[in-house]
Simulated scan of single mutants.
Amino acid sequence: MTTQTIDPTKAEAFAERMIDILNSGAVTLLTSIGHRTELFDTMAELPPATSPQIADAAGLNERYVREWLNGMVTARLVEYDPIAKTYCLPAEHAAFLTRAAASDNIAPFTQYIALMGTVEDKVIDCFYKGGGVPYSEYKRFHEVMAEDSGQTVVPALFEHILPLIPGLTEALERGIEVMDLGCGRGRALVKLAEAFPNSRFTGYDFSGEAIAYANSAVQRRNLSNVQFQVKDAATLEEFDRYDLITTFDAIHDQARPDRVLQNIYHALKPDGVYLMQDIHASTDVSGNLEHPVGTLLYMLSCMHCMTVSLAYGGMGLGTMWGQEKALQMLSDAGFTRVEIKQLAHDFQNDYYIIHKN
């Protein structure tokens, strides 16, 4: 038996990194709480304040607020004056932690850590038994995903995403048929329906909860050119109907993404365009070593995207299926004209512009 020699410097560096990882995980959970309770938003509007003052302004329990504040202080997200006993959220931090920061707000994404933690036991069971964890086990998934979409897709729709396809905005103004597959709560489609009253929009999603929310939004806005329905994308049977089909971060967690892409191909009109937004990645892990959030995305894949596909007997592509696999599957579905574009402000996603003919 060979005894492996340990490099003490390398071992110590790794131990220090593990401590950093533990602290970062703790900060992530505390940041999620700060976002959900709007504590960051409250503090951004206050001068340096005591814990009771901050709790009172936020309408929250002071003891919990104080413990949260102290965690934020040790994480260096909040500054503390030990003489005045006051806490302050620096403007430079508020620029990435508050709702006023709009698409620059990183705090909403920290919710994924707590959300995925709720299914850890079930995912561990899958490590031993195989199978997967179904959508129904993720109690806040569509709520968090809607906020995610509100950070990445919805604000960029008109200025950045639609212009990726020449002439699309003008076509929408004239009036075309549009489908969004895997629409979730329908935030993007509702925005499009409001902006382009001459076009007709259809949204499909597997989740009845998400579709109910989307239909409620339609009723509140009194829109007549958009409809939402519960539908499994793998069972879609429509032919030559749509001028434009979109999927936003929706293909890789399908049970049968191959069948879904074929259905999209058939549902498009001969001169139709398919816009697929999906995760920017390489299919082989070696191409993702420098990805700025590669570890986060593999975690989300293991804890959600891959396992929900496997739960329905699916392929389990996973979040990081990558460009190479995506291009292969698009080709297998019948698409031969594919262009991949990226947006300067969006390092996380690729935008596939796909023509049927």
Rank of each mutant, 00 (worst) to 15 (best):
M1W: 03
M1A: 15
T3N: 11
I6H: 01
A15L: 14
E16Q: 15
E16N: 15
I19F: 11
D20S: 15
D20T: 15
L22I: 15
N23W: 06
N23Q: 15
A26D: 14
L39K: 03
L39P: 00
D41L: 00
A49Q: 04
Q53P: 02
I54M: 00
A55L: 00
A55N: 01
A57M: 05
L60A: 11
L60Y: 03
L60H: 09
N61F: 08
N61Y: 10
E67K: 13
E67L: 13
M72D: 07
T74D: 03
A75N: 07
L77C: 07
D81W: 02
T86W: 10
Y87T: 06
C88L: 12
L89Y: 01
E92W: 10
H93K: 14
T98C: 08
T98P: 02
R99L: 07
A101W: 01
S103F: 03
S103K: 08
D104H: 14
N105W: 03
N105M: 07
P108C: 14
T110E: 02
A114W: 10
E120L: 11
K122L: 04
K122Q: 07
I124P: 09
I124H: 14
C126I: 06
C126N: 05
Y128A: 14
K139M: 03
R140Q: 11
R140Y: 07
Q151W: 02
T152W: 07
T152F: 09
V154E: 12
V154F: 04
H160E: 15
P163Q: 11
P166K: 10
G167S: 07
L168N: 05
L172D: 05
G175R: 06
D180E: 11
L181M: 05
G182V: 08
A188I: 09
L189W: 00
L192R: 02
A193H: 04
A193K: 04
G203L: 00
G203I: 05
Y204H: 06
G208V: 13
G208L: 10
E209V: 04
E209R: 05
V218I: 10
R221P: 04
S224M: 06
S224A: 11
V226E: 01
V230R: 14
T235H: 05
L236I: 15
D240K: 10
Y242M: 09
T247A: 15
D249V: 14
I251P: 00
D253T: 12
D258K: 06
R259Y: 04
Q262M: 11
Q262A: 12
N263T: 05
I264K: 01
I264R: 03
H266Y: 03
K269P: 03
G272N: 07
Y274S: 07
I279W: 06
I279F: 06
I279L: 10
H280W: 03
H291C: 07
H291K: 13
V293S: 04
G294H: 05
T295K: 13
M299I: 11
M306G: 05
V308C: 06
S309Q: 09
S309N: 08
A311G: 03
G313V: 14
G314L: 04
M315G: 09
M320S: 00
W321E: 05
W321S: 08
G322V: 07
E324P: 11
A326N: 02
Q328A: 05
L330A: 00
S331L: 06
D332I: 08
F335D: 01
F335H: 02
F335P: 07
V338G: 01
E339Y: 06
E339T: 11
I340C: 02
K341D: 00
Y351E: 02
Y352R: 09
I353Q: 01
I353N: 04
H355V: 10
K356I: 01
N357A: 05
